[in-house]
């Protein structure tokens, strides 16, 4: 998940006129003409399939209009799958935002070279995930995992105290492996714009550490934290591979439900149920993206 929606350096040079168009083939073509193959590609592979999902969500098996798919998708087992997905994403987000903030504060405070290294490590780890991560955690916190065995030998068998890796709680822990580094990457820039004068102004007026964070630090970072939280939420909400590999589908998250419908576990008359669930996911992500755009605009204004 890319988090930097704010315009890059080019935006600053917005006024710079485009140069040398005469050099390129098709110089007299409209300026968007060179983008056509790319747009066509996105259109064929993404836009048309997405439209098909949205339209299909409102169709009966024979193609007539209906709201039945949406009704089924929002009740019974499918409602609980949305609830499970929200539980997992919200728990993952809260944990990753707190841990990622603490880690970002620690990394922002370290010296030049080690900071660059830690930032690179975060960038690599934010891209892990998927199937291998699931098995790495089975080896760590699974029934026979190394950490599980160490804890049991110390007299605390987590599996006797209600813990299971193959649960929402377990997935929440596994997801931290790529979500915390993602939060670090999002927060480290805003934190590094902290100005010494802010701290000095606050402390010279007698503010304690707690008071500084409550009245100055967190309010300044709040928009960045919010947009970070939205990105993390979306990443957790759409994740599928790790959950599928870890639980073989026993936790009925929305993407896993869609997956099993695609694989052919479809009841008669519910051929478009998957589309309704897919539309639900698109709506949730679009809502998140809207919040993200609003809050990142605010944070860009603050942290200039």
């Amino acid at each position: 998940m890319i988090i930097d929606l704010q315009p890059s350096p080019a935006a600053a040079r917005e006024e710079e006129p485009p140069t040398s168009p005469g050099l390129w083939p098709g110089a007299r073509a409209a300026s968007w003409a060179g983008a056509v193959p790319f747009l066509l590609f996105i259109g064929l592979l993404l836009v048309i399939p997405a439209i098909s999902v949205v339209v299909g969500a409102f169709e009966t098996d024979s193609g007539g209009f209906t709201l039945a798919n949406l009704r089924i998708a929002t009740e019974g087992p499918y409602l609980s799958s949305f609830i499970a997905s929200f539980e997992l994403s919200i728990a993952s987000t809260v944990l990753a935002v707190i841990l990622g903030m603490l880690a970002a504060l620690a990394i922002a405070g370290t010296g030049g070279r080690s900071r660059a290294l830690l930032q690179s490590a975060s960038s690599v780890l934010a891209n892990t995930g998927g199937v291998p991560l699931a098995f790495a955690f089975i080896a760590t916190l699974g029934n026979f995992g190394v950490v599980t065995e160490v804890l049991s030998s110390l007299g605390f068998d987590p599996y006797r105290h209600g813990f299971s890796l193959y649960s929402v709680l377990g997935l929440t822990i596994v997801y931290q492996y790529f979500l915390v580094p993602l939060m670090v990457l999002i927060m480290i820039g805003p934190i590094r714009t902290f100005k010494r004068s802010w701290v000095e102004a606050a402390t010279s007026l007698g503010a304690s550490r707690l008071r500084f964070w409550a009245s100055v630090g967190l309010p300044i970072l709040a928009p960045a934290i919010l947009s970070g939280a939205v990105v993390i939420f979306t990443d957790a909400f759409a994740a599928y591979a790790t959950a599928e590999a870890l639980t073989s589908g026993t936790i009925p998250l929305v993407p896993i439900q869609i997956g099993s419908l695609v694989s052919g576990n479809v009841a008669a008359g519910q051929g478009n149920l998957g589309n309704a669930l897919g539309l639900g996911m698109i709506i949730v992500i679009a809502a998140a993206a809207t919040i993200y755009l609003a809050s990142s605009r605010r944070s860009a204004r603050w942290l200039r």
């Binding site: 993404l46 997405a50 979306t234 759409a238 599928y240 869609i258 998957g274 589309n275 897919g278 996911m281």
Partner: peptide, 13 residues
């Protein structure tokens, strides 16, 4: 844009 449509939904579509 591809971030807005989960891959499982892309397959479906």
């Amino acid at each position: 844009l591809p971030l807005g449509v989960p891959s499982v939904v892309v397959v479906l579509g």
